[in-house]
Design a binder for these strands. Structure first.
Lengths: 115, 115
DNA sequence: TCATTACGTAAACTATTGACTACATATAGT
DNA sequence: ACTATATGTAGTCAATAGTTTACGTAATGA
C-alpha cells in the first residue's frame, strides 16, 4: 500500500476516484496519459487494495476503497497515546523541538557539528 | 516523502526514532542490518525531511521530524469536509459500499463480470 | 601519536519500476 | 456478421532503487 501511494500519478487517480467512481477510459481522459500507463497504475492500486474494479460490459468501473487508508489512521492517529501521538501533537502545538529534550542541544550553542 | 515511506525498513527506522532519538550505530544495532544499508535509508529519510540529524563528536544523532507527516494528516485525516472525509467516514461507519450508490450494482445481481 | 570506534563516500551490481510498442480480446450497436 | 469502442496481455527498455564491497575520514582515550 505504501508503495502504491509513493507515485504522484497514483495519488491523482485516487483523488479522481474519491470524487466518484470512473471507468478506466475516464481516468485516462482525465489524466491525459497513455492508456497503458494508467492501466498499470490502476493495477498497482488494485493490488494494494486501494481500488476495487468491476467489468461492466465493455467498460471497467473503478472504485476507491478507503479501507486500507485506515491503516494510516491506526498507525499515527488512533493510538491516542503512544510515541506517534505525542510526536504529532507536538507538531500541532508548534513544539517540534520538544523531542530533543533537556540535555539536548538547541541549535547553536558551543560547537556541535564539527565542520 | 511518500517514496520515503514506501520502504518497510524506513518505516521501522521512524518507529525507532519516534520513541527516542538514536545514533546511527544504535539504529544499525536495533535493526540488525548492514550499516551502509541503514545509512542509505537514513539519507532518504533526511532528504524527505522526515529525519533531522546532527553530528556530535564521533556519533550522529538522528531525530524524527514529524512535521512532514502532517501533510498526510491534512490530506486524509484532518479534512473535516471534502471527498476524502466522507470516504473515510464511510469506512468508519462500515459503509464501504456506499460509494457505489444507487444504480450501481451490489455484488451479484444479474451478470456483471462477463466471464 | 596510535589504536579503536563510529561515521562517510564511491563504485559496482542486481532487482524493481515505469513507460512504450505491438498484438489480442470482448462488447455494443447496427 | 461487421465495425467501432474499450479494455487486456506480453515483451522490451531505460531509469531508479537497494544492497554489497572497498576504501577513507574523524574523534575518543590511553
Amino acid at each position: 500500500m505504501w508503495r502504491a501511494l509513493a507515485h504522484a500519478t497514483r495519488r491523482q487517480v485516487l483523488d479522481l476516484l474519491v470524487e466518484s467512481p470512473r471507468t478506466t477510459g475516464q481516468v485516462v481522459a482525465a489524466l491525459g496519459l497513455d492508456r497503458h500507463v494508467v492501466m498499470a497504475h490502476l493495477a498497482v492500486l488494485r493490488d494494494a487494495g486501494l481500488v476495487l474494479s468491476e467489468r461492466r460490459g465493455r467498460v471497467r468501473m473503478n472504485f476507491l476503497n478507503a479501507v486500507p487508508i485506515q491503516e494510516i489512521h491506526h498507525r499515527w492517529v488512533t493510538p491516542a497515546s503512544g510515541p506517534w501521538a505525542s510526536a504529532l501533537i507536538a507538531v500541532r502545538d508548534g513544539a517540534e523541538a520538544l523531542q530533543e529534550g533537556p540535555g539536548t542541544p538547541g541549535l547553536v550553542d558551543d560547537r556541535r557539528i564539527s565542520g
